[in-house]
Amino acid sequence: MSIVGKSAHSAKFRRNRWLLTAILSLYFIYTFLPLFYVITAATKSNQDLFSTFGLWFAADFQLWENLETLFTIQDGIFLKWMANTAYYSSVSAIGAALFATFAGYAFAKYTFFGKKLMLALVLGAVMIPQTALVIPMFLMLSNLGLTNTPLAVILPSLVFPPGVFLMWAYIDDAISNELIEAGRMDGAGEFHIFSSIAFRMLMPGFATVLILAFVANWNNYFLPLVMLNKPDMFPITVGLAQLYSTAISGTGGVLLFTVVMTGALVSIVPVIAAFLIMQRFWQGGLGAGGVKA
């Protein structure tokens, strides 16, 4: 009897495919519902927010009014927060992605003393949440007099162990040793090989780490909360939380719930835009052709 593999036409394959679609649909609903709630809530008036069905739009479409309030509240401080977030996250993300690429390249392509130990430390660091390190880091930066400066948020964010891990695995696969050796035979120094041959081949990996670090920093709440106490230095996360706390505690602050929701909606737009822009860099196959598989 011959062995027949599962093909696209077999009943079992089709059954499995339906099951997969069903599970993924459930997952999609699970992730999309909160986002949808934010979208609908941002279009409502404060009264409608509590009196209408949460997952659908109210009759009174208030999005423009909410946006206007958002950008004018406290002399337009929301715009300042957005600029802060953009500044902290882009500098941190570019720095983190660069360092992750350097480290990953070294781990993947060089042998050096203590490599195994250092790699183990990086992998171990992936498991430690930044939250656990924020207080010691605060004390450290406080001693250096760096709290309440952008560096207080940027410096700790340059260390991105998951990015190092990702680049290590990616570079190990994407750049053949022979390619580096060809560069050496051509007389190029190690940094020249990295910058003029390897780096362009690493763009898909670099872009992935960049976007991951960017999103992680964009959404980071606890680190800036601890490091910064001047409202005009806050990123959106901390600023919105502050608005929210005035909304629930302050008199007359009731009005602000929808503004917080609108702020949340506005704050995710750049992240989505970043994903769409970076997408083309993920298209692999850059390494194809130079080295025969």
Partner: peptide, 21 residues
């Protein structure tokens, strides 16, 4: 001496061409 200082050229099994060039 390093590879380039020996003034040798090498052809690799996988060609090892620079794919982005």
């Amino acid at each position: 001496l390093g590879p380039a200082e020996r003034q040798l050229s090498m052809v690799f099994q996988s060609y090892a061409l620079y794919p982005t060039k």
